[in-house]
Design a protein around this nucleic acid. Sequence first.
DNA 1: GGCAATCATTGACACCCTGTCAATACGGGA
DNA 2: TCCCGTATTGACAGGGTGTCAATGATTGCC
Lengths: 257, 257
Amino acid sequence: MIAKATVGLQPAPFFLLPPSSIPPPVSIEERQQEEKAQRRRSIVDAAEAVLGRMSMENMTMADIASEARLSRSLLYVYFEDMEDIVLAVTLRGFEALAEQFEAAVQAHDAGLMQIRAVGEAYVRFAHEQPTYFDLVARFEARSADPEAATDRERACLAAADRVMTAMTDAIQNGIDDGSIRPDLDPTETATMLWGYTHGLIQLMANKETGLKQQYGINPDALIDRGLDFIGVALTGTSPHPAPNIPTEAFVAEQGKD
Amino acid sequence: MIAKATVGLQPAPFFLLPPSSIPPPVSIEERQQEEKAQRRRSIVDAAEAVLGRMSMENMTMADIASEARLSRSLLYVYFEDMEDIVLAVTLRGFEALAEQFEAAVQAHDAGLMQIRAVGEAYVRFAHEQPTYFDLVARFEARSADPEAATDRERACLAAADRVMTAMTDAIQNGIDDGSIRPDLDPTETATMLWGYTHGLIQLMANKETGLKQQYGINPDALIDRGLDFIGVALTGTSPHPAPNIPTEAFVAEQGKD
DNA sequence: GGCAATCATTGACACCCTGTCAATACGGGA
DNA sequence: TCCCGTATTGACAGGGTGTCAATGATTGCC
């Protein structure tokens, strides 16, 4: 990760600065702000590292503090409580996910392919960044109070919106280019698909071994099949000219075999 | 709630029993077992009642004990810890859900209708028994160690299996009666659908207000649309004879508008 | 009925975690 | 060098958990 450079404000040449200075900031106050932000970042880094090796329920403030080599009290200066810190890590997770989704959309032309790629990106995300995935899942499982949201919660919701937007765009593209049936509402469908894929991937992530040994299910194959399944629904015709639902009489007839 | 009657073992008429006796048990040891079970049940009742008015994170052993009018220490005699108690409530949730699913399947003849009814039953369940739904969702979000499972965890998994079986049966019925396309594997498809519907309903349950005010989405309508969507995928043809994916050239052409 | 044994129940304790606050250390400006 | 505001910390109170020895109740036996 590369820290974002301060744009449009050139620092003095390094050979004019006292040795302890850090390049970008100019005024003292500015440097103090920068240091504060840096400290905040290092706390979030520490929390992320700890979450890489233990679950959230077991993590304590002391764990984070010792990982960051700070006193526990200091964490409360920079963050409300542990929930606040965890939300900061969660925000990183959502942002990483949004980037993956946006890249997936850009990598293809046809809308249907873009949606498929988004699904595959989410599978990869869950696999390669399990810490982030767990945090995103946890956030999705929380009931979000509409108005009464923290700044940090709002930031997560905004990043989640980027995720949704990527999917909405892909669906709109698909409708425009004819690869997705036109009777779908892009926003509504994106929401549905988000719920679907999240649900399926969460199921796979958590019940993988159980499903494998109890039902003989191959997780990767199932996910593939699941994405195919969504593809069928996206291309198929509207459900309202009802499909082949047999009459009760027909079913009774079948039952005689 | 009416306690299940002990079948096939008639108690003595109540006027022949000493006033303190409880009808069914015969031997003393048997009665002690029954009392033990009753106490366990009353603890789970208490936990369920408490969960009806506060979230799991906020609940404490003291809350459960006071609701059950027992000392906190006693809870540890009957259960390992709070997790154990909560799992017992979760088991009730899974069993209630399984009953709903089985009833939904029995209420219809055509497989596709059965699956639709199962979906609607799940929506109703989430709406009418939110405590159970939250517990089921929490259980689904936990990574289940395959072998290293508590007895109580195993019981939950068994109840979850009933849920899956109801869906598998419905899909098999649908394939047999022609209302569902025959190239689907029932078990695999049931797993997929469970993940999908759970994901969608969880999304709706938690983000309802947010989606409503940010995207103008009507939750109930979205769920309906979502079940339609699944219906399309269940009836549609196999994806492998690929749908209308436009060539890159075609897309480029479209882009010129 | 009385007594010993067994079981159910409880209060008290030690430990851990959280969140706060007064006290201390640090660094810039006069 | 000293003063002042900020950063940092140790120590504390409060509350939750899980355990254990002590107490109370019930049963089996005489």
